[in-house]
Design a protein around this nucleic acid. Sequence first.
DNA 1: AAAATAATGTAAGAAATACTAACATGAGGT
DNA 2: ACCTCATGTTAGTATTTCTTACATTATTTT
Lengths: 131, 131
Amino acid sequence: MNDKERRSMPLFSIGIVMKLTELTARQIRYYEEHELVFPERTSGNQRLFSFNDVDRLLEIKDLLDKGLNLAGIKLLLDESVEEKQKQSEVKNSELSDRELRTILKNELKHAGRLGQTNLRQGELSRFFVNR
Amino acid sequence: MNDKERRSMPLFSIGIVMKLTELTARQIRYYEEHELVFPERTSGNQRLFSFNDVDRLLEIKDLLDKGLNLAGIKLLLDESVEEKQKQSEVKNSELSDRELRTILKNELKHAGRLGQTNLRQGELSRFFVNR
DNA sequence: AAAATAATGTAAGAAATACTAACATGAGGT
DNA sequence: ACCTCATGTTAGTATTTCTTACATTATTTT
C-alpha cells in the first residue's frame, strides 16, 4: 500500500467527516451531487470518505469562504488535478482555461475575508499521511 | 494538534475497523469488554476507534495467533504502555512482573505459526501518522 | 421590482449499521 | 466428562445515514 492508495482509502463515515470539516451533511452531499467530491460507498450505499475527500472538502470550504461559487471551485480543483497529473506536459486544455478565466474573473470580484476553522485545506492528510 | 492527539483521535466506526483488522464485531467488542481497547463513543453510544485503538487490535490479533490468551495479552500491552511511559524510571512494578512471567511462561508453551493478514501491529498509524 | 438561481435548512420515511443481551458451540486443559 | 475461553449467532432496539421534496435566504438576471 503506497501513499496514493492510503490517501484514497475509504475510511470515514459522513458523521466523522462532518466533525472534521465542520460542514453539514447537506453541504457534503450537495458538493458530491455537483461532482466536487466522489466518496466511495459501502455495499449498503453509505458514503465512505478518504483523506483526499476530506481535504477536498476543506478546500471547497475555504474557497467558498473566499466568495467563489461551486462551478468555479470545480474548475479550479479539476485544473489543479490535471496540472498535477500531466505536470507541464503539453497544452493546458485551452477551452477549459478560457472558461476558467471567464468565470473566475467574475467570481474573484468578491474574495476577501476568511473564516478560521479547526482544519484547513490539505491539513488532514498532511497530519496523517506520511510523505 | 500533536502526534499523540492524532493517534488517539476517534475516527473509525466499527465497520471500518472490521475491514482494517479483519476481526469480527464480536471479537472487537469482546476485547473491549475485557479492557484491551477503549474506543470512544458517539453521543448515540456508537463506538469510535482511533489509530491507536486499531493498532492495539492488530497487536491483539497477532498475539492471539501466537497462542497467548487475553489475560496475557492484557498484561503484555499494559506493561509495554507502562514501559513507554516511565521509560526506565524506577521499579518495574514487581508484582505485575512476577504475574506476567508466571502467566506467560504457561502461555508461551504454544506460540509458533503466524497468520498473514493485510495489516500488522503498529502498521496502521505508521502508515498514516507522521512521526 | 419580479423572477430565476445558488447554497443551505429541514422534514419524512426507508434502509443500513451498530448496540446489548442471551444462548450456542468448539477446542483445549484439567 | 467437565470447564473455561474465544467466538458465532440471533433477536430486538437504537442510531445513523440515505433519498426526495419542499422551504428559505441571498444574489443575479431580466
